[in-house]
Design a protein around this nucleic acid. Structure first.
Lengths: 227, 227
DNA sequence: ATCGCAGAAGTTGTATACAAGTACACAGTC
DNA sequence: GACTGTGTACTTGTATACAACTTCTGCGAT
């Protein structure tokens, strides 16, 4: 699977290389332990080393590769790493939701409702890319609502990885039939209901349930998908 | 205050520029809203744009500046931002400590004890730089013990900022007399005792107390120090 | 005085060149 | 045969050059 090109319209070269390499690492096309050379990658992409260098730095800051003296080593995203990624997602989202408990969540509820509508539309159109995008948007909207610069920074640092993982898993989910897709939508509706209660305890439980369920989904769908 | 040069021995140019700029931003020498030009900074440091570019990318990923089309804009670290930074530190450390509750913390306790000894020594020698370094090492050791790649990644993404803030605050603390320094050491000893209990509830409370107290310290010392 | 337009200066993104250092293979020696 | 030294190919880090784009300035026309 390739990174959707429409998302890179007008973006600098370096960004495209970053996304492509990220996808290759997460999808498993580039295996952990493999070493990447700036020269080789630049040649592969037909560019100079400058944008490649940027990509390497970005991927390193995302924890997908490790910069060493000779060549960068692929770290990759195995089952364990994906679990850990979701630990952090839980941490971030849990924090965000707890933080806005008690505040007026009216506008947020409306926003999230609209996103769920778009997810349903994407499901109807059998458009996994759009679906994944809306899925990401859903969670991102919640996190943004926390209005916490550092939490936002944390999110940004894993956002692209989460997006890529979602792209891959959503493809898988779509291939498993409508029921599975409907299930994902339902999970988001439950999250929304949780927020609507405005009760910290309930929210805590809702978020916990959501991610507990995601672990199962991931282990069922991702690992076979990546051989 | 400048970044300790001994910490940059043999490091690439870009890293030095990153650290120097970071220090200037956090100390307030570079004020929020100011725009930085790669050319100007390169000229200031007497280097080419390449290492400066790297520094900009790093600082951007740390959330200290915002890359825009024309020039990078300084975001800075005001009181609110430091609070938020400590929110995340709490989140990370709390997670780490909870995670190893129940496991054998014996070796960790020994390690932390040694670090506290070094802190005491640094206090006796009136060496705030060494003290700050050991303070960082203390927390880093705890986080590393969680053995969680993503949490470690999160830590790495704020580590340098935390280090820099510590450098600045420790200078301040040292100038306020021995009692204050002893107080900081005592806080760490309490943290260590908390871990030693191996009781999640107690640990939770200990960590919370630690950071609650840190907020007070920060607001008393940092803000006047940075005018 | 105000608006519009050209141009100049400055900006980033990318390509290319070069220097310094590292790993590795291969030959020569003990 | 094992070991050491050397040379080579490849690596990163930095400097420099250039192109495309943006912003602002200043001049001229209205």
């Amino acid at each position: 699977m390739r990174y959707p090109e429409s998302w890179l319209r007008g973006a600098p070269l370096g960004e495209g290389i970053t996304c492509e390499l990220r996808m290759q690492i997460i999808s498993g096309a580039l295996k952990p332990g493999e070493t990447l050379s700036e020269n080789r990658i630049a040649a592969d992409f037909g560019t100079s080393r400058s944008p490649v260098r940027e990509a390497m730095k970005t991927l390193s800051s995302e924890g997908l590769i490790r910069l060493e003296r000779m060549g960068a080593v692929v770290i990759g995203l195995g089952e364990k790493e994906v679990d850990e990624l979701y630990d952090v997602r839980f941490l971030i989202e849990s924090f965000a939701q707890q933080r806005m408990a008690g505040l007026d969540t009216g506008p947020l509820i409306v926003q999230l409702g609209r996103i769920i509508d778009k997810m349903e539309l994407a499901a109807k159109h059998m458009d996994p890319i759009e679906f994944a995008y809306q899925d990401l948007a859903f969670h991102e909207t919640i996190i943004a609502e926390a209005k916490h610069s550092r939490i936002w920074q944390l999110w940004k640092s894993i956002r692209q990885i989460v997006m890529t993982v979602m792209l891959l898993t959503t493809e898988e989910v779509f291939s498993e039939g409508e029921a599975r897709v409907a299930g994902v939508i339902d999970k988001h509706r439950k999250l929304l209901n949780g927020i609507q209660t405005n009760d910290p305890k309930t929210i805590e439980r809702t978020v916990r349930d959501y991610f507990a369920d995601s672990y199962v989904t991931l282990h069922d769908s991702i690992s076979p998908a990546r051989g």
